[in-house]
Simulated scan of single mutants.
Amino acid sequence: MAHPAAATPPDMLTVRDVLFGSTPNQVMVLRTTQDNLGQYYAEQRDTILIVIDRATGREQQYPVYRMRSEADFDIDPMGDRRIARAVPLANAVDPFALLTAAGGMPLIGDGDPPAEGWNTGTAADVDGVMVLTFADGRTARAPMAAILQQMDATLQTTAGVLGDYSRIAPIGTADLLSGRTHACRPISARRIDDRSGTAATAILRVDCEEDGDAGISLLTVLTMDSAADGSAAD
């Protein structure tokens, strides 16, 4: 059956992080990507597990799940009805298995009010330094340039985990995830204090807008400033 006539849209690949769990040494994040594959009648979504070291911020990424949906023109000639199919990934991991093995606990992400183990703070750019401040006076900080550099790096790691896949345009995943950290701003500041014996860890969400939408929404781990700086202890 012929498809409805329509010009192809630009290739769009959005990325959003949500918190998944914490362990004494790590923060675990689930990253979901949504790719329109350069067309109106299909898309691909991937989920990646990101394991972040709470002390250093170093991360490892693992594929979890891939799904493709395509219009079923036999059922709906206009293409509004889609059929979703899982795409097998040979090296996929089970996030709950890794969380269990590491002795961790699941976290509820950006809930309001914050879930147990969370503290809400504010985030402000002070002369190029992102400063997170919490209710007890404790702070975390990092140069905004360094945060954006880390975001660029983690997106390229994600591109490597995703790999290239079939699409209409001759463009690679790494190209689609390059140069995406512009018009970025802090959205929220959270703190993990999970009573594991590990010092509290600050989490910053940064959104980067494209055409009015947050095409990129990532979580970054920041080390809390020392209590000796004049703030209260955990």
Rank of each mutant, 00 (worst) to 15 (best):
I187H: 08
A124F: 05
A55W: 07
P24E: 05
L13F: 05
G128D: 13
A214V: 08
L19G: 05
L49M: 13
I48M: 07
T120H: 03
L19T: 08
T56W: 10
R31M: 10
A202D: 02
A71T: 13
A92C: 04
S188F: 00
V15G: 04
R58L: 14
M67D: 11
L162A: 02
T14H: 00
L37C: 01
D194A: 14
R85P: 03
S196L: 06
M144T: 13
G103Y: 04
C208K: 00
V221L: 13
D112M: 12
Y65I: 03
R180H: 03
E210D: 07
R191W: 00
H182Y: 05
M151V: 00
Q149T: 11
G57S: 11
T122G: 15
L37D: 02
F20W: 11
A153W: 03
A42T: 09
D125Y: 08
I75H: 12
T181H: 01
T181P: 01
H3R: 14
D152T: 01
P106R: 14
M1L: 08
F20V: 02
V161D: 00
I48T: 11
I48E: 06
A92W: 03
A142G: 00
A228F: 05
R167Y: 08
A71G: 13
I83P: 02
G212M: 09
V93R: 06
G103F: 08
M67L: 15
L132M: 15
I50R: 15
E70V: 14
D211Q: 14
D193T: 07
V129I: 15
M1D: 10
S196M: 08
A92E: 05
A142M: 13
R185C: 00
S22F: 03
D76L: 10
C208D: 02
R82G: 06
L218S: 00
G79S: 09
Q44W: 10
V29F: 01
V206Q: 05
Y62Q: 12
A169Y: 13
A115N: 09
D234M: 02
V27E: 12
Q60V: 11
D72R: 10
A42W: 07
R58H: 15
V87T: 11
